[in-house]
Computed example of a mutant assay.
Amino acid sequence: MDTEDFAADAALFARLRATWDDVDPMPADMIDRMVAAVAVADLSREYALLTLVEGAITGAVRTTPAETATLQFSRGDTSVLLHVSVTESGKRRIDGWVDAETLAIRLVQGDRDWAAEPADHGRFAFEEVPPGMTRLRMAVRGTDGEMKEFETPQFEA
C-alpha cells in the first residue's frame, strides 16, 4: 500500500468517524459506566475468592483441614454454603445449602461432573466424590425472577 492510498483511507475513516459522532454520539458518561461495570463484575469474583480463603484459614484453626472444610460463596443475591468431609473410603462428601430457587446443581472436576437435586430449604449433597480441584455450577432464579448461572471458584475437595 503506498502513501497516497494510506492518506486517502485515513481521510475517509476520519469523515466516517465524524459522521457517526454527529449522528450517534457516545454518551458522555459511557467510559465511566463501562469501568464501573467491569469493576463490579470482578468484585463478585474477588469476594467469592476472599470468602473461600477466609473459610480455609478459619477452618484450619478450628478443625483438621484433612477431615472437614466449610466454604461459603456469595454473589449478588445468592449465597451457597458447602461442608466438605472425608468419608471412610477416602473420598469426599459435599453437603450444600443454597438460599435461592435452584433449577440445576452440578459438581465439576475436570471432565467429570455429578448432578444433585435441591431438597427442602435448598439443601443438596454429593457422595463419594474423588478428592481434587472442584467447582460448583448452578442455575438459580434471582430475586428479580431472572434465571442465571452461579459458579464458584475452584476449591479442593
Rank of each mutant, 00 (worst) to 15 (best):
E4W: 06
D5E: 12
D5C: 06
D5Q: 14
F6Q: 13
A7G: 03
A7I: 11
A8I: 07
L12W: 00
L12V: 00
L12M: 05
F13A: 10
F13V: 05
R15L: 10
L16Y: 03
L16P: 01
R17Y: 00
A18M: 06
W20R: 14
W20F: 14
D21C: 07
D21K: 06
V23F: 02
D24T: 13
P27H: 05
A28C: 01
A28W: 01
D29P: 01
D32N: 04
M34D: 07
V35A: 02
V35Y: 07
A36C: 00
V40H: 09
A41V: 02
A41P: 06
A41Y: 11
D42G: 13
L43C: 00
S44K: 13
R45Y: 07
Y47R: 15
A48E: 08
A48R: 02
A48F: 06
L49F: 12
L50Y: 12
L50F: 10
L52G: 04
E54Q: 13
E54F: 10
G55L: 02
T58L: 15
V61S: 07
T64S: 13
P65H: 03
E67N: 12
T68N: 09
L71V: 01
L71Q: 04
Q72G: 08
S74Y: 03
S74V: 11
R75F: 06
R75A: 15
D77S: 09
T78W: 07
S79N: 01
V80I: 14
V84T: 06
G90N: 05
K91V: 01
K91F: 08
R93Q: 09
R93I: 01
I94C: 00
I94P: 03
G96T: 06
A100M: 05
A100T: 08
E101L: 14
L103V: 10
R106C: 07
D111V: 11
D113G: 03
D113Q: 14
W114A: 00
W114H: 00
A115V: 00
E117H: 10
E117S: 11
P118K: 08
P118D: 05
D120F: 01
H121K: 13
F124H: 02
A125K: 03
A125E: 04
E127L: 12
E128Q: 15
E128T: 06
P131S: 02
G132N: 06
M133A: 15
M133S: 15
T134Q: 03
R135N: 05
R137N: 11
R137M: 08
R137G: 08
M138R: 07
M138N: 06
A139F: 05
V140F: 01
R141F: 09
G142Q: 12
D144M: 09
G145Q: 11
E146T: 14
E146G: 02
E151T: 15
T152S: 13
P153I: 03
P153H: 01
Q154T: 08
Q154A: 08
Q154G: 13
F155Q: 00
E156F: 12
